[in-house]
Amino acid sequence: MAHTTPAGPAVSAGPAPAGRSKRRAGTGRRWLEIAVFAGPALIVFVTFVIVPVILAAVYSFFNWNGLTPLERFIGFDNYIEAFNDPDFLQAIGNNFTIVIASILIQGPLAIAAALLLNRKLRGRAFIRAAIFVPYVLAEVIAGLSWNLLLSPNGFVNALLEMVGLEEWAQPWLANPDIALWVMFWILTWKYLGFAILIMLAGLQGVPEELHEAAAIDGAGWWKAQWYVTLPLLGPTIRIWVFLSIIGSLQLFDMVWVTTRGGPLNATNTMAVYMIVNGQTRPGYGSAIAVILFLISLTVALVYQRLAMRRDLGGAITRGVR
């Protein structure tokens, strides 16, 4: 689920629609229309997303092994336990490491790639398609492939030996000192395509005349991008950063299928920790889920306040003009 949600940090639905809705006759009929149109989505969403999440929140206050009835209410004990577990604190640390590394490394890479792919380039369609391949791949399949590639007797080590770098060969996913960075490499490989997709979409909104104007002024291509395109790409970048943060905080699938959080918790994330512990202690796992939600929400709100203030009520919610 991580990283796959192209959407805006929208606490605001934007300004009220201008127009004639207020003078339309019959508020009764208007409410009926609203109910008929929004009702089905709301019912499905509340039933299958909100209700389970509320239930998870309820479980989090119980000492519960998933088999017995919910009857041992323990208040905030699960929460206290979580913050006293060094493994969980390490998982939080790993999540934030990935958050920061993603922004600092994947962001610039994605912008550069999108700028390249947005210009006339022989074989552009092919290049674009190739770059999106990892993003479209199922996590299960990607994890299976990387496990094969990175195993001690796998392709990567064999390749290193072939080019005379055998001293670099090592069990990539088994070394706790580098596993997190190997994981980050896999994540970058997997999700860079999505970042490029977002950036490309943003670039469609940058008027071509601006490039031309810059070109006529004699500015170099990269210079033109830096001074002209990049500032206009601002809202897009800020949205990608938001999505990347949420995705990195909730990272689960790729880690689960590749390392299960190991070795020695080196690649553990909050969501993996939640699943591992929630298997035999759903009450405790639910407390982790709530913590994960609160951290995501806090980070999202802080980020919106700091970075996206000028986009609020506009940018992602106003739409193209």
């Binding site: 689920m1 969403f45 509340v46 479980y59 929400l297 999202a300």
Partner: peptide, 23 residues
């Protein structure tokens, strides 16, 4: 209404898998 849907972004399916399954 919009905020309710947008908050869904913060709920990965894994969080609620047990109650969802029971439901």
């Amino acid at each position: 209404l919009y905020a309710v849907f947008a908050a869904g972004l913060m709920f990965p399916l894994t969080v609620a898998s047990l109650p969802l399954n029971l439901l």
